[in-house]
């Protein structure tokens, strides 16, 4: 039973995209991996429209005071078990935005993050590699 569950999860990770306060690039690269050159549907990865359907949350951008409650709400709405994959340097650490009054730091302070994919933005290859690594760790 456990094996079947694991197999199902590994072969069909549906992802929901949560953008906190990104600069759009990581988000565009996420959409980019769905398009012909990368085509992650080969691995069964599908971008879904509702967090209820998701197995993994792709989080991008820095957290700020206004979107933190919403991000936590999305995390609560996602059926467990779910992976949280932090994409982009901002999702790993606020970096250049550290001094700002509205930015409140990395995701792992608030929700458990499984994989970090740094880069500004990470190349599509890096994103695919990160997701595959995350699945291998299951």
């Amino acid at each position: 039973m456990g094996n079947a569950k694991l197999w199902g999860l590994k072969k069909s990770p549906w992802v929901f995209h949560v953008a906190a306060a990104p600069c759009n690039n990581c988000d565009i690269e996420i959409l980019d991996i769905l398009t012909p050159r990368w085509d992650v549907e080969r691995f069964g990865i599908v971008l879904v429209g509702s967090p209820r359907h998701a197995d993994a949350l792709l989080v991008t951008g820095v957290l700020n005071r206004k979107n933190l409650p919403r991000v936590l709400e999305v995390y609560r709405q996602t059926p467990k078990p779910c992976l949280v994959i932090a994409i982009g340097a901002c999702a790993c650490h606020p970096n250049i935005f550290q001094p700002s009054y509205n930015v409140i730091g990395p995701y792992d302070k608030y929700i458990p993050v499984d994989v970090y994919i740094p880069g500004c933005p990470p190349k599509p290859e890096a994103i695919i590699l990160g997701v595959v690594k995350a699945l291998q760790r299951l």
Binding site: A4, K11, G44, D55
Partner: peptide, 13 residues
């Protein structure tokens, strides 16, 4: 089939 199996074994909210 993988999608179906996974959905069957996931939490239903």
């Amino acid at each position: 089939y993988a999608d179906f199996l996974k959905l069957l074994l996931k939490e239903t909210i």
